[in-house]
């Protein structure tokens, strides 16, 4: 039986955010916005969802005089992301076997 895909990660924007954060120490909101091409409002909503799930942490502060929102993936987020990728690979293997 195929594993269930994490619904929180099975969404284009949230998955893109998690993919970026999985490869870096932390990333600014502005960087995530630029990389994903999402609007500020949409990105904020998705970041809130990932934060609520405990997949990422958000730290608001200042760099010089500029406000800064830094996002960082948590160990739970890393684990969920890893499981999600494994599940996707199982889905792909299964579809190949069917073909």
């Amino acid at each position: 039986m195929l594993p269930k895909l994490d619904p929180l990660l099975h969404s284009e924007l949230r998955l893109a955010v998690m993919s970026i954060l999985a490869g870096v120490d932390e990333a600014d909101f502005t960087y995530l916005k630029k990389q994903t091409g999402a609007t500020s409002g949409n990105l904020s909503v998705q970041i809130d969802k990932l934060t609520t799930a405990g997949y990422i942490t958000v730290e608001k502060g200042f760099k010089g005089k500029m406000p800064r929102t830094a996002c960082r993936i948590t160990p739970a987020g890393q684990e969920a992301f890893k499981n999600y990728v494994s599940a996707l690979q199982e889905y792909l293997s299964a579809s190949k076997e069917v073909k």
């Binding site: 284009e12 924007l13 998955l15 993919s19 999402a38 949409n42 909503v45 998705q46 996707l88």
Partner: peptide, 16 residues
Amino acid sequence: MEQIKEMTAQESLLLI
């Protein structure tokens, strides 16, 4: 980027 788009497993891996 839309957050509600349904993706296949292949599309998800490609996006990652």
